[in-house]
Amino acid sequence: MKSKNRMKIEFDSNTNNIGFARVCVAAFLTQLNPTLEEVSDVKTAVSEAVTNAVIHGYDKEEGGQVEITSVLEDDMLTIRIADRGRGIEDVSKAMEPLFTTKAENEHSGMGFMFMQAFMDEVNVESNIGVGTIVTMKKRIGCEQI
């Protein structure tokens, strides 16, 4: 039998909420009985995507909202992180390792690289002036014996 569970949160675009967002998703994920490593991987991926929304999507300006929807379907975790910020001009360029538009603030350009390393699938949809949606999937429990 297929089991399905879904959650949705929305919060202000603020660096204070990045920690809240990753802990929320991690708490929701515990239902799948993940390993510590899986929890840590998911937290990092969420942190990267939400940081991108706050820092790049809204350029740290107040008033923006970030929405996270997460679905657990059997052992599959899906996380959708959406902002209505400025959007990414060239998604494939943005996803290149070490590419950053904010080198002066010491952003490492490794955000998307970490998302891809820690999740099974990362998909980015972005439109200038409309916003960005990052959808990530990870199968939980496949590393367990």
Partner: peptide, 13 residues
């Protein structure tokens, strides 16, 4: 117990 790519930027800098 938690770090993301921002931490890498701090160390790298």
């Amino acid at each position: 117990n938690f770090m993301d790519s921002t931490g890498i930027g701090v160390i790298m800098g």
